Computed example of a mutant assay.
Amino acid sequence: MKSSVNNAVRRRATGAALVALVLGGGAVGCSKGAAQESPALTPAAAVAKAAKKTEDITSLRYRMTGKVPGEGRVSGEAAMSMKPLAMSMKMTAEDQATDGPVEIRLVGKAMYIGAGAEAAKEMNGKSWIKFDMSALGADKNLNADQLGGGQADKNPATESTFLTGSKNVKKVGTETVAGVRTTHYKGTVTLAEFRKSLQGRDKATREKREKALDQYSKMGIDAITMDMWIDGADHTKQFRMRGAADKGPLDMTVTFLEFNKPVTVTAPPAKDTVDLAEMMKGAQQG
């Protein structure tokens, strides 16, 4: 049973985890009003100002769509609170044969993944699998980083700061995104350029941004083309990231619907949940 459940969970979780990994970073912003730009504010300064505002995020809700390397087209919606840490994400892998959207919930130090109908057959009808993020690692085939848990504690504002390392940020024009007037900026940045731009930053900021950078290095991405749509309150309303990875193209667009609003995520009912650690411990003892 252990092997079949592991395989079912891995198929369900991998695509969602990659999205969570990519979107464990992001930008944030959602305010109404016309896009306004100071005559003295250069494109680079506007992007830097928006990046600075991401440091004050406490929660956000967003939707995403695009392509993930090795997984194909994905779409979904998520909500996340930074303090206390909690996340709820529903994701659909459109190019893969699955039995419905994958749902991930992060509550405290536990991550729950909706196992789907096939895995539920192997778990006496239970449809959720619980992963203790502080205890995972004993099973090399199902560890926290593979399932996206290694990215779960990141402030999902980090990737929006990548464009601050670009040397060719340009203003594209003004556009309406989800009913909000924004200013569209675009540029390219190599990972080496962004890493260099972190020199002189405070230790906490530098470490957080370097951690986000590392995930792209592991994908084999050397450079990122980025579009940002910034609203009149200097928040990033939407961003798009594109890059060439070892397993195919990365092309993700994230649109922010709310931020700094209450986010509540609850654990699935215990009667519908299997604890992976207990299940594996029982299998080992058996």
Score class of each variant (00 low, 15 high):
residue 2 K to V: 15
residue 5 V to A: 11
residue 10 R to T: 14
residue 10 R to L: 15
residue 15 G to D: 01
residue 16 A to T: 00
residue 16 A to Y: 00
residue 19 V to R: 03
residue 20 A to W: 00
residue 23 L to A: 13
residue 27 A to T: 10
residue 34 A to I: 08
residue 39 P to W: 04
residue 39 P to N: 08
residue 39 P to A: 09
residue 41 L to I: 11
residue 42 T to N: 10
residue 42 T to V: 13
residue 43 P to C: 05
residue 43 P to Y: 02
residue 43 P to T: 12
residue 45 A to Y: 06
residue 45 A to D: 14
residue 45 A to E: 14
residue 46 A to D: 13
residue 46 A to P: 14
residue 52 K to M: 11
residue 55 E to G: 11
residue 56 D to I: 07
residue 59 S to H: 02
residue 60 L to C: 12
residue 62 Y to E: 09
residue 63 R to L: 08
residue 65 T to L: 06
residue 70 G to E: 03
residue 71 E to R: 05
residue 72 G to V: 13
residue 73 R to I: 10
residue 77 E to H: 09
residue 78 A to H: 07
residue 78 A to M: 13
residue 84 P to K: 06
residue 84 P to C: 11
residue 89 M to P: 02
residue 103 E to H: 01
residue 103 E to Q: 08
residue 113 I to W: 00
residue 116 G to M: 00
residue 119 A to S: 00
residue 121 K to C: 04
residue 122 E to F: 06
residue 123 M to H: 03
residue 125 G to D: 09
residue 125 G to Q: 07
residue 127 S to G: 12
residue 128 W to H: 02
residue 129 I to H: 02
residue 129 I to W: 00
residue 134 S to W: 05
residue 137 G to M: 06
residue 142 L to V: 15
residue 143 N to Q: 09
residue 149 G to T: 05
residue 151 Q to P: 03
residue 151 Q to N: 12
residue 152 A to I: 09
residue 155 N to L: 10
residue 156 P to M: 07
residue 159 E to F: 09
residue 160 S to C: 08
residue 161 T to L: 04
residue 163 L to H: 04
residue 163 L to D: 05
residue 165 G to P: 02
residue 167 K to A: 14
residue 168 N to H: 05
residue 168 N to M: 06
residue 169 V to I: 15
residue 170 K to V: 15
residue 171 K to D: 03
residue 171 K to Y: 02
residue 173 G to N: 07
residue 177 V to G: 08
residue 178 A to W: 04
residue 182 T to A: 08
residue 183 T to W: 00
residue 183 T to L: 08
residue 188 T to C: 04
residue 191 L to K: 09
residue 193 E to I: 09
residue 194 F to K: 09
residue 195 R to Q: 11
residue 197 S to C: 01
residue 198 L to A: 01
residue 203 K to F: 07
residue 203 K to D: 14
residue 203 K to S: 14
residue 204 A to V: 14
residue 210 E to T: 15
residue 210 E to Y: 04
residue 211 K to Y: 08
residue 213 L to N: 06
residue 214 D to K: 13
residue 215 Q to E: 14
residue 215 Q to W: 06
residue 220 G to Y: 01
residue 222 D to Q: 12
residue 222 D to P: 01
residue 224 I to A: 05
residue 224 I to M: 13
residue 225 T to S: 14
residue 227 D to C: 10
residue 233 A to R: 04
residue 236 T to E: 03
residue 236 T to W: 01
residue 238 Q to L: 07
residue 242 R to M: 13
residue 246 D to V: 08
residue 249 P to V: 13
residue 250 L to W: 07
residue 251 D to E: 10
residue 254 V to D: 04
residue 257 L to N: 02
residue 260 N to Y: 02
residue 260 N to S: 08
residue 263 V to W: 07
residue 266 T to D: 14
residue 267 A to K: 01
residue 267 A to V: 15
residue 268 P to H: 01
residue 270 A to F: 01
residue 272 D to Y: 02
residue 273 T to P: 10
residue 273 T to S: 12
residue 275 D to W: 07
residue 276 L to Q: 09
residue 277 A to V: 15
residue 281 K to S: 13
residue 286 G to S: 10
